[in-house]
Design a protein around this nucleic acid. Structure first.
Lengths: 122, 122
DNA sequence: CGGCATCCCTTATGATACTG
DNA sequence: CAGTATCATAAGGGATGCCG
């Protein structure tokens, strides 16, 4: 506990952290969350905005994010059906943290490219 | 740019962000980085501390982190060979951000579990 | 000591077609 | 509109054995 660099406090935290990191590490998860940051959106609206995502992957990504409590899925019982997806407060908080990763990435773009060049050289 | 919630600034940033998120989303990447936070460590030292990780996955994880410039690999030309792995400054910064994700995870453990229960029920 | 090569299973992603 | 079903490929991950 005295170790400031300590990331994980318990077994459960560690497992949860890993699952969340792999969740947001999924190919479409970050952009889907970003699409929902200003307002809730409907399935085909997301599909259009995130083209060339496939229906299958959009569904899978949404289900995954929902199962971790990062987004909500609201079905309006109309004809035709209308489904809205929106960020939860938790999801919004996490997205803010991810924007920190984005800033880190921008700061280190050069270092990342350099490291990749070097590793390709071997 | 005026949009404070905007995560990504360019195509390149977006691709880099995705690759970094999927990198740290790999099964062993976060714990490997955590092991290196206090001091550099050698291959079998990591292997012991991270048991039951396999040699294959430890190698793959280290290579991946190295190729993104998050850790360094230093070979001391001794007999037997001695290889030390250490965090780069960039890696250390990223780890600090990830600890923010860890704190988020701890704050939302209940919400995560609740959401998962609900999604299992369907 | 610090790997790499091989086999094998699971999961992620994509393409396409069909449906309540 | 908002999906599901099916098929196919690739990448992640584990077990085991060999090597400079």
């Amino acid at each position: 506990m005295a170790e400031s660099a300590e990331i994980v406090e318990s077994e459960e935290s560690c497992a949860a952290l890993r699952s969340i990191l792999s969740r947001v590490g999924e190919k479409w998860a970050p952009v889907v969350m970003t699409e929902l940051v200003t307002e809730p959106r409907r399935f085909n609206e997301l599909r259009r905005r995130l083209a060339p995502i496939t229906q299958r992957m959009l569904t899978a990504t949404l289900r995954g994010l929902e199962s971790d409590g990062l987004i909500t899925r609201t079905v309006h019982p109309t004809v035709p059906p209308q489904v809205e997806y929106g960020l939860t407060d938790a999801g919004r908080e996490l997205l803010a943290i991810l924007s920190g990763v984005a800033r880190w990435t921008d700061r280190h773009l050069d270092a990342i490219h350099t490291a990749r060049q070097a590793s390709r050289g071997r």
